Amino acid sequence: PHCSREKAFLAELGKEVPGLTVALYEGVEHEALWRSMCAQYGGVSCGPVPLTFIGDKAFIGFSEEEGPLEKHPVYNAYVGYSNQLIIALEEELGTSITNPLHRSSSQVVLFLGIVLALYLASYPLLGKRLGKKVWIGILAGIIIVSFFILIAVTPERTIKDFAEKLPFPGFVFVVALADGFNPCAFTVLIILLSLLTHTKSRKKMVLVGSIFIAASAVMYFVFIMAMIIVGSFFFSRYGVFIMRILGAG
């Protein structure tokens, strides 16, 4: 999947950036060239793919997310964040390049904004026909779906960078909001709300809802702490071995 995503990414750049030539080679079919390039770039590991060579830099893998210029200690190559590929191309070509992933995100935001504006403008007509409650319910559905789409198309690094600039409570709120908009959470919430509505008792709704929130918070805390403790233990001892297995897979 990484190779196919990077091919689409490079194809967009090849169409729009003057003077850029993208040469694609299959490692199996051009093994001698592949190993020769790895050796020329300081002994880059030839195991995992994709490998991207730009100027004097070699990049391992591909991620649509944005990240810093960091060298992978196992593969002796830079991590293939999309923004770092763009920066390397800008340095080589001496020109400014727009990340095609940013452009697609902006188009999605514009489209969602137009849809929301049109629906809000339809209130004088649809509000009377559907009824105020139904119209507001549809509006809430549009907003929720829009959040799903926005979070899906927004790079994770962008969300993290924005959240890290906020005070700690704001950081927690933004990260929790981004994490909460997922199909699993909303499926559980729909089932829970259906059960609570069936009780027809506000006291029971508050009791069950409070227990659900508290239990979710405790389980999240336990699992996250377990992942941190167990993960740090294994990676401190077997990190290189684990990364080689993951890279080979």
Results as ranks from 00 to 15, higher is better:
78 Y>I: 12
82 S>L: 08
82 S>A: 13
84 Q>F: 05
88 A>Y: 13
89 L>N: 04
89 L>D: 09
89 L>F: 10
91 E>M: 05
91 E>Y: 03
92 E>R: 11
92 E>C: 03
92 E>H: 01
96 S>W: 06
97 I>A: 04
100 P>L: 05
101 L>I: 15
102 H>E: 08
103 R>S: 01
103 R>I: 05
105 S>M: 07
106 S>M: 07
106 S>G: 05
107 Q>R: 07
108 V>W: 03
109 V>K: 14
110 L>Q: 12
110 L>Y: 06
111 F>R: 09
112 L>M: 04
113 G>A: 09
113 G>P: 10
114 I>F: 05
116 L>G: 03
117 A>S: 11
118 L>A: 15
118 L>W: 03
120 L>I: 13
121 A>P: 10
122 S>T: 11
124 P>W: 06
124 P>N: 13
127 G>T: 11
129 R>H: 08
129 R>S: 12
130 L>W: 07
130 L>K: 10
130 L>Q: 04
131 G>D: 14
132 K>I: 04
135 W>F: 15
136 I>N: 07
138 I>G: 09
140 A>I: 06
140 A>W: 05
141 G>K: 06
141 G>W: 00
141 G>A: 05
142 I>C: 01
142 I>H: 06
142 I>N: 01
143 I>K: 02
144 I>P: 00
144 I>G: 09
147 F>L: 15
148 F>A: 05
151 I>H: 01
151 I>F: 06
153 V>L: 00
154 T>P: 00
154 T>G: 00
155 P>E: 02
159 I>N: 03
160 K>D: 00
160 K>N: 02
162 F>V: 13
162 F>T: 14
164 E>L: 15
165 K>A: 10
165 K>R: 14
167 P>D: 06
168 F>D: 01
171 F>Y: 15
171 F>C: 06
173 F>T: 03
173 F>M: 03
174 V>M: 12
176 A>P: 02
179 D>K: 00
183 P>I: 11
185 A>C: 06
185 A>G: 05
185 A>R: 05
187 T>Q: 04
187 T>F: 12
187 T>L: 12
188 V>F: 13
190 I>Y: 11
190 I>W: 05
192 L>D: 08
192 L>H: 10
192 L>A: 14
193 L>M: 11
